Amino acid sequence: MRIAFYGSSLLSSYWNGAATYYRGLLRDLASRGYTITFFEPDAYNRQQHRDIEPPAWAEVRVYEATEAALHAAIAEAAQADVVVKTSGVGVFDEDLLEGVMMAARPEAIRIFWDVDAPATLADIAAAPDHPMRRALPGLDLVLTYGGGPPVVRAYESFGARCCIPIYNALDPETHHPVPPDPRFAADLAFLGNRLPDREARVDAFFLQAAALLPERQFLIGGNGWDTRPMPPNVRSLGHVYTRDHNAFNVTALAVLNIARDSMAAVGYSPATRVFEAAGAGACLITDAWTGLELFLKEGEEVLVARDGRDVAQQLAALTPERAKAIGAAAQARILAGHTYAHRGVEVDAILRRERARARSVPA
């Protein structure tokens, strides 16, 4: 089957946390015989901050952020068996959603793939005329990268025929143990862009812990933190390219995961960083959220904190030996059940089922 995939970017993770998710899933689907064309706009300086060049397993079409280029990209949807529009493309999102679904052939599978379902659902709930309300009845599937039962129920209440979470996962070919790198030396490291619905939780879980442990060294990576005053024991790196994530994760004694407000409230939304850290064998400390037990076991495969004081206590008590044991246990758990090969099996089965369903429906 030919897939036309309209997303934010496959080539760059710059202000684009979904890049690893797209790469892992689509590379696996390509290995299963799917032909993939990924359409991404030239926007937000992402093409100037590429992590990868166009891969052999997908054709990448970079289009200018203009209406003319948009319409040309939309027209390509007519060539596909599966048409996917993701959330958060960032350029002409409404026009792109309506356009590609209209351009798709009648027998094509139409999918909206939501990589920030809590935010999308909040927007839909707040706007009776939201374009998703019009689009949902015409879609075959809504796939999400998290959210679990609450997100499924919400999408179905808005008219989705079928909503299925396809969770983040690990690509062991790209995220794995490497030697430590002195650039990332720290007791606790956190990687995430500065976003309005994350900053307060970074204050509470990361910066408060740093203030409570002034003798320990803390490291923060991601866009936007350069203008934020930091305690003297916190070092800010700026954007960390995907190629450096393994070294970032393995070098510190522990790495911290902090969900955004909406993701924490809904639960069942493990960030890509959770799987990257586990794949590298890093010791992960995460904020608490519903559904964590589906992926990692508290106390054995991951450490869980309810606030910054918890983070500080976990870190103060953590020995290198225990950190290594937790990281190894997390890596084994994720490799056994949460790789993109596992997710690819799920998506392949879903697409084959949808194709069979469409063929069984009388014209």
Rank of each mutant, 00 (worst) to 15 (best):
G7V: 02
S9K: 01
S13H: 06
A30I: 14
S31H: 11
S31P: 08
R32S: 08
I36Y: 05
A43C: 11
Y44D: 13
N45E: 14
I52R: 00
P55Q: 07
W57I: 01
E59G: 07
V60I: 12
A69M: 07
L70P: 03
L70I: 08
I74M: 08
I74Y: 08
A75Y: 08
A77I: 07
V82H: 04
K85M: 12
V91C: 08
F92W: 10
D93L: 08
M102K: 13
R105T: 15
P106I: 09
P106R: 08
F112D: 06
V115N: 10
A117H: 07
A119T: 15
L121P: 00
A122G: 14
D123A: 15
I124L: 02
A127L: 07
P128V: 12
P131L: 05
L136T: 06
G138T: 13
P149L: 00
V151A: 14
R153Q: 13
E156M: 05
F158V: 03
G159V: 08
C163F: 03
C163S: 13
C163Y: 04
P165R: 06
N168L: 10
D171F: 03
P180E: 05
D181Q: 05
A186N: 05
F206W: 09
L207M: 13
R216A: 15
Q217K: 13
L219H: 01
R228C: 10
P229Q: 11
V234L: 07
H239N: 09
T242V: 07
R243F: 03
L253V: 00
S262D: 15
S269L: 06
T272H: 01
F275V: 05
A278P: 02
C283I: 01
I285G: 11
D287S: 09
T290Q: 10
E298H: 04
E300T: 15
V302Y: 05
V304H: 01
G308V: 00
R309F: 07
A316V: 08
A332T: 14
R333G: 02
R333Y: 00
E346M: 09
A349V: 09
L351M: 05
L351F: 11
R353L: 10
E354K: 12
R355G: 00
R355E: 13
